[in-house]
Amino acid sequence: MGCFHSTAAREFSGHENPVKLASETAFSVSEVEALFELFKRISSSVVDDGLINKEEFQLALFQNRKKENLFANRIFDLFDVKRKGVIDFGDFVRSLNVFHPNASLEDKTDFSFRLYDMDCTGFIERQEVKQMLIALLCESEMKLADDTIEMILDQTFNDADVDRDGKIDKTEWSDFVIKNPSLLKIMTLPYLRDITTTFPSFVFNSEVDEIAT
């Protein structure tokens, strides 16, 4: 475990301690410190308040502050664990942790289930899937006839909704992604393996003695 000098408090003042965050995630302390460089950049891009608001989140992801989107809103809501309308550093690291290549399949499955359970009912319902499908078609300017969309939904629910109750529960989703592992492709960010090379400036701010880790 790295020893974290008190002088580092200045750098992380008001944010969770990187040694503690590293102990809770797949990241090393250095990787958490590198993520802090990314966090500082995003959280100061519109309002320099040490928190990421939705505009900053969308600006960082899509280089566009105003790009309102169903999916982006949903992901922001899942990162905003404390439901404050902003993302603090701890939640940012813990949420990104799910996308780490070494994160568990169970965590990835759980996050993707909550991602698609748009109304937070505890089920992925047909109407929600249709809404997401139409959002995707709008985004890619693809046109599909209504009956084609219904056919895709029929096939999807035929495969996933095993008890035929018209909605996909957590167990059905877990079984479905095991049969269709490509559905979790979005849940892994290879970049997270090299975060310290992407944001090397953390070295200048690092106060943690990695030797002791």
Partner: peptide, 29 residues
């Protein structure tokens, strides 16, 4: 002759193609 019924892609495979679900934008400086 086997039936050539077309394989219907499932909705989540399509949805997963959304660029709004790709967080790698964070790391592209």
């Amino acid at each position: 002759k086997g039936s050539d019924s077309p394989t219907i892609i499932n909705a989540f495979q399509l949805i997963g193609m959304s660029s709004f679900l790709d967080l790698s934008g964070f790391f592209e400086l």
